[in-house]
Simulated assay, not measured.
Amino acid sequence: MEAFLISTGIVALAEIGDKTQLLAFILAAKFKKPVPIILGILAATLVNHGFAGAIGAWVTSLVSPETMRWILGGSFIAMAIWILVPDKFDEDDAKLARYGVFVTTLIAFFLAEMGDKTQIATVGLAAKYNNLIAVVAGTTIGMMIANVPAVIFGDKIANSIKPAIVHRIAAVIFIVLGVATLLGAGSGFGL
Rank of each mutant, 00 (worst) to 15 (best):
V151F: 02
F189S: 14
E91S: 15
F25Y: 15
I173V: 13
M1W: 14
D90M: 00
T8E: 02
A24R: 10
F153S: 13
T181L: 12
N131A: 10
T118V: 10
D87K: 05
D87L: 02
F110S: 12
A80P: 06
T105C: 06
A137P: 08
T122E: 09
V136L: 01
R98W: 06
V136I: 04
L96P: 12
I175P: 14
N130W: 07
V47W: 11
K19N: 06
I145C: 03
P149W: 05
R168E: 11
V103R: 15
I10G: 07
F25D: 12
G74V: 05
G50A: 06
T67K: 15
N159W: 14
F31R: 07
L72N: 08
P163C: 05
G56V: 00
F89H: 14
K162W: 10
K156Y: 13
L5N: 11
A164V: 04
A180V: 07
L13R: 01
G138E: 07
K117A: 09
I175A: 08
G53V: 11
V103H: 12
I38W: 11
F4W: 06
G74L: 08
A12H: 01
F51K: 15
E66D: 12
P36D: 01
I71W: 02
V103G: 11
F153A: 12
G9F: 06
L13S: 06
L96G: 14
A146P: 03
